[in-house]
Computed example of a mutant assay.
Amino acid sequence: MENNDYYEPTIKTSRVDEITKEQALKLLDTITKDRNNLKNEKQQLISFLKSEIATKNEILDKKQKYDNNYYIICGERSECHRILDFVNKGGKDE
């Protein structure tokens, strides 16, 4: 008998497990729910960052430029802007 060890891995990797229509629909439903959850979380993050930026702007309006906290808050606000830009670009750097 001929030795078919050479072809066996190819045969094994080319096989596709069959799933039922119910399993496929359940998987699709899970993927859709996960995608919607991610969209909601992204929107929550955007809202949080916008709120933080607005809060920092209000604080900066009341502070004097020579106050050490003024520069710390400016840095925090800049960082919030940077993260917000990153999220709005879909998580891609330029």
Rank of each mutant, 00 (worst) to 15 (best):
M1Q: 02
M1C: 03
E2K: 10
N4I: 15
D5P: 01
D5A: 14
Y6I: 12
Y6F: 12
Y7S: 11
Y7D: 12
E8H: 04
E8M: 15
P9I: 03
T10P: 00
K12D: 05
K12F: 01
T13S: 14
T13L: 13
T13K: 15
V16I: 07
V16P: 06
V16A: 12
V16C: 11
D17W: 11
E18N: 10
T20W: 06
T20H: 08
E22Y: 04
A24D: 08
A24H: 09
L25D: 04
K26V: 02
K26R: 11
L27W: 09
L27D: 10
L28C: 03
L28M: 12
D29Y: 08
D29I: 01
D29E: 15
I31S: 09
T32S: 05
K33C: 02
D34Q: 11
N37V: 14
N37M: 01
N37A: 10
N37T: 11
L38K: 09
L38E: 02
K39G: 00
E41N: 13
E41Q: 13
K42V: 08
Q43G: 00
Q44W: 13
L45A: 09
S47C: 05
S47Y: 02
L49F: 03
K50D: 13
S51Y: 06
S51E: 13
S51D: 15
E52G: 07
I53E: 07
T55W: 05
T55F: 05
N57P: 00
I59V: 14
L60T: 01
D61K: 14
D61W: 03
K62C: 03
K62N: 13
K63G: 00
Q64A: 14
K65A: 07
Y66V: 10
D67H: 11
N68E: 15
Y71R: 11
Y71A: 09
Y71T: 09
I73R: 01
C74R: 10
C74M: 13
C74Q: 14
C74Y: 08
G75Q: 07
E76C: 00
S78I: 11
H81W: 12
R82C: 06
I83E: 05
L84W: 12
L84S: 02
D85G: 01
D85F: 03
F86E: 00
V87Y: 04
K89Q: 14
K89P: 01
K89L: 06
G90R: 00
K92Q: 15
K92P: 00
K92A: 12
D93M: 08
